Amino acid sequence: MKIYAAMASAALILAPPASAQDMSVFRTGPVFTDFGPHAPVEGIGEVPADTEFSVAFDVAEGAEDGKRNRAIESAARFINMHVAHGVPEENLRIEVVVHGKAVLDLLGPEGWAAHGKEGDNPSAAMIRQMLDHGVRFIVCGQSSAAQGVSEAELIAGTETALSAMTAFALLQQRGYTVNPF
């Protein structure tokens, strides 16, 4: 029995991590060239050009120290991959509802410094580019209050709602689906 346990332990140690991924096929663009990587998928053809998406992304987890917020980048990936597969950019209505600790990833330079963070906000340039492309960022007012973030500290162009719950309810009434990642 001990030999089987030793073999199982050795197999676990030598096996590649389950989370190991081959990212070599992923590319950015065509909308965002510095972020939002996606992979081509063979055999599916293009998504019909008259396809329209109204999608709200739910972002609650903050970024890892020194990195961009991955959940926010998922919204950029959604845009890149669908435009790359034939959906006109103007047919994509994307809203990012930010709550919890992720509110800190929407801090502008003064707010970033005021909250004791060094350097530049790693997510700021990405968020600004997304705002320039019509992505709407809605900040949960309740989370802002809990994190001690004032509206003046946020990246220009973001909007504040009473709560994330309120924002999602209103977006769903307008026909948006909720993407939980």
Score class of each variant (00 low, 15 high):
30 P>V: 04
127 I>F: 10
71 A>Q: 14
56 A>G: 12
126 M>H: 01
8 A>W: 03
161 A>T: 01
145 A>G: 06
87 V>R: 07
69 N>V: 14
122 P>T: 00
18 A>T: 10
97 V>D: 07
128 R>C: 04
123 S>D: 15
97 V>H: 00
56 A>S: 15
154 L>G: 07
11 A>V: 10
160 T>R: 11
49 A>K: 12
25 V>Y: 10
180 P>L: 06
102 A>N: 08
152 A>E: 10
85 H>Q: 13
8 A>D: 09
122 P>R: 06
104 L>T: 15
48 P>R: 15
118 E>R: 12
5 A>K: 13
159 E>G: 03
158 T>H: 04
109 P>A: 11
96 V>S: 01
64 E>M: 13
52 E>S: 14
113 A>Q: 15
8 A>F: 11
85 H>A: 15
110 E>D: 15
34 D>S: 14
10 A>E: 09
134 G>N: 06
138 I>N: 03
109 P>S: 13
18 A>C: 11
145 A>V: 10
88 P>E: 08
139 V>K: 00
111 G>I: 07
20 A>P: 05
82 H>D: 09
83 V>H: 12
150 S>T: 14
103 V>W: 03
149 V>K: 03
172 Q>F: 02
157 G>T: 04
139 V>I: 00
117 K>C: 00
104 L>N: 14
59 V>A: 02
124 A>Q: 11
63 A>C: 06
139 V>P: 00
27 R>Y: 04
93 R>Y: 06
1 M>I: 05
128 R>S: 13
41 V>Y: 05
38 H>D: 05
152 A>M: 01
107 L>P: 15
119 G>C: 04
85 H>M: 14
163 S>T: 05
63 A>N: 14
50 D>V: 12
